[in-house]
């Protein structure tokens, strides 16, 4: 009814050894297939021999599989964002606005968050400070007009 303890330990051992970067993403799905047999073998064990303690190999397999599964959950979760404004905006200006790889139902790609003050146009380039009255520019124009006025006469 039970596979031998050595074989089960071998399976658990090979599961740990297969802990490589390429398989981290698929680990969650692989280990769902690992926790179910250990629960089932516990069920079989307790129905056949209710009063004996649980064999060590089942316990080890269960603990190893939930450890791997929770590692997979942590690794596949979304990355955290820096909370300090300087680091957060620095990260954004370094990386720029890019697609996140997720798509809306309408077929538009979801973009990462961008600079919330981009509409001010402070970075120059285009028009610069759109929506703001260019006080310095107007003052310069006026000064030149005042200076130029007597000369033209």
């Amino acid at each position: 009814m039970f596979s031998s303890p050595d074989r089960r330990l071998q399976i658990a051992d090979s599961q740990i050894r297969r802990f490589t970067d390429s398989q981290i993403i698929s680990m969650r799905h692989k280990n769902e297939a690992n926790i179910i047999p250990s629960v089932y073998s516990t069920h079989e064990h307790t129905t056949t021999t209710p009063n004996s303690p649980l064999p060590l190999d089942i316990t080890l397999e269960l603990l190893a599989s939930i450890l791997l599964l929770s590692t997979g959950i942590v690794l596949t979760s979304q990355p955290l964002k820096p909370i300090q404004w300087s680091r957060w905006s620095g990260k954004m200006s370094r990386e720029g606005r890019h697609g996140t790889g997720r798509w809306t139902r309408e077929g538009e790609e979801v973009l990462s968050e961008g600079d919330p003050y981009a509409f001010l146009g402070l970075d120059g380039g285009g028009e610069g400070r759109r929506g703001f009255f260019d006080v310095r520019g107007k003052r310069r124009e006026y000064a030149e007009w005042v200076k130029g006025e007597p000369g033209s006469k």
Binding site: V74, Q78, L80, K81, P82
Partner: peptide, 23 residues
């Protein structure tokens, strides 16, 4: 001096709470 980004704080809390619920 060092302001905090509220959306990032919310995002991080959400991530931690998701992980907690699943595990």
């Amino acid at each position: 001096i060092n302001p905090i980004v509220q959306t990032s704080v919310q995002h991080n809390t959400q991530v931690v709470s998701n992980i907690r619920n699943l595990t």
